[in-house]
């Protein structure tokens, strides 16, 4: 599979001169399987440029996998051109809830007064699915597992031809503790990340920032590196950059993460980053 990052900023879109190199769009990752199946991870503001730049290679069936429904992972949906095309078959997957369907929960945002159009009037008539367990999408084997964030959230593992990508943009593996202090089977997200070729993972806070924000559902740099190592991943791509962190600060964060890792392992996600596995 091939992948491209269209947005890796956390919490809030952050355009401007301080975020030019890593980008200001919120979570959105494009994955193409070998049979050309298109899977899009999250519908942050990066989804809009994806729709524009891929207009000529857009398949008629699109799968969007939402990790959760915080706005930074959802607000691009209404600005994704294929949503307005009646010839597109759009499948949207997201975390299950025992009380309201995924469509009902998304409609809270996708309806007036927060959005000008009702979800039921959208030409592509999206089909909503609970992301639970494991299933096939084209050539991909997808699994979803509840992970620790704030509110219902899943992590995704996408596998094809023996390679695996794990995606957990918003994740606090252990509240206030180093992920190495618990047995792996008790570690949130470990099942998704274990042995993955690429792990895209929350890396929102410095240690000092995390101290003040334990339980907010995000990771410190230290905890991401520890989580990546406990999960024995091949490549750790640090994702969901804090809106307050400038490009220069993210460079420093990367250097620090590599010191903790003991080598070149960790990388910083940036808008436009491509990968293959």
């Amino acid at each position: 599979m091939r992948g491209k990052i269209w947005g890796c900023r956390g919490s809030l879109a952050t355009p401007g001169p301080d975020t030019v190199r890593y980008g200001g769009n919120t979570s959105c990752v494009e994955l193409r399987m070998r049979d050309d199946t298109l899977i899009i991870l999250d519908a942050g503001t990066g989804l809009r440029p994806l729709g524009v730049k891929r207009a000529h290679s857009m398949p008629s069936r699109i799968h969007i996998l939402l990790t959760h429904l915080h706005m930074d992972h959802l607000e691009g949906l209404g600005f994704f051109a294929p949503v307005w095309d009646p010839n597109i078959e759009l499948h949207v997957w997201g975390p299950p809830s025992p009380t309201h369907s995924l469509g009902e929960r998304i409609e809270r945002y996708f309806s007036p007064p927060l959005f000008p159009v009702q979800l039921s009037d959208v030409p592509s008539r999206p089909v909503f699915h609970d992301a639970d367990g494991a299933w096939e999408i084209g050539a991909a084997r997808v699994s979803a597992c509840s992970i620790s964030h704030s509110g219902p959230t899943v992590g995704y593992r996408i596998e094809e031809s023996g390679c695996a990508l794990a995606y957990m943009p918003d994740h606090e593996p252990m509240r206030g503790k180093d992920p190495r202090t618990v047995e792996p089977e008790w570690l949130s997200g470990h099942e998704i990340a274990q042995g993955a070729d690429i792990l895209l993972h929350d890396s929102q806070y410095t240690a000092e920032e995390y101290e003040e924000r334990v339980g907010w559902g995000h990771s410190s740099f230290e905890h991401v590196v520890a989580f990546g190592q406990v999960s024995a991943v091949e490549r750790l791509i640090m994702f969901h950059h804090d809106p307050m962190h400038t490009d220069d600060e993210l460079d420093k964060k990367l250097a620090y993460a590599r010191t903790l890792w003991g080598g070149d392992g960790p990388e910083n996600a940036y808008e436009g980053m491509e990968f293959e596995l």
């Binding site: 597992c145 509840s146 992970i147 620790s148 047995e183 792996p184 089977e185 008790w186 570690l187 949130s188 470990h190 099942e191 274990q194 042995g195």
Partner: peptide
């Protein structure tokens, strides 16, 4: 690779 029996998030929390 033998996977350890992972606990559900409800049990972890």
């Amino acid at each position: 690779m033998v996977r350890a029996e992972h606990k559900s998030l409800a049990l972890i929390l």
